[in-house]
């Protein structure tokens, strides 16, 4: 069997000013090819204004098993949300 080709994750910015969003991945042996392949595969229907590619091996992900430890603690910190606060009646623009 052939040696595996490098896999790259693709992020597309659909419009100027918006954030790049994960679109999927491509195979490519070098970064120029990765960018070109991403363009061919993910922007055939006018979906893009900018493309990022990054080798998949560089993506670090949290584990599902850790998800409670990672994310539950932020559940009860309501003071991070503006609705937590009581504003005096009649106050505006705040």
């Amino acid at each position: 069997m052939e040696e595996n080709v490098t896999v790259w994750e693709v992020f597309i910015q659909s419009k100027n000013g918006l954030a790049h969003k994960h679109a999927g991945n491509v195979h490519a042996s070098d970064k120029v090819m990765a960018l070109d392949n991403a363009r061919e595969l993910y922007t055939r229907r006018n979906e893009g204004s900018c493309i990022w590619v990054v080798k998949s091996e560089y993506i670090v992900s949290s584990e599902t098993e850790d998800s409670e430890a990672f994310f539950d603690p932020s559940n009860d910190k309501m003071y991070r949300h503006p609705t937590f606060y009581t504003m005096p009646e009649g106050s505006k623009h705040i």
Binding site: E2, N4, V5, G24, N25, V26, H27, L41
Partner: peptide
């Protein structure tokens, strides 16, 4: 390609 990508997430290479 989209489908090979999805399959690769299960731990098997396109090759």
């Amino acid at each position: 390609l989209y489908l090979y990508s999805a399959c690769e997430t299960l731990g098997i290479s396109r090759e």
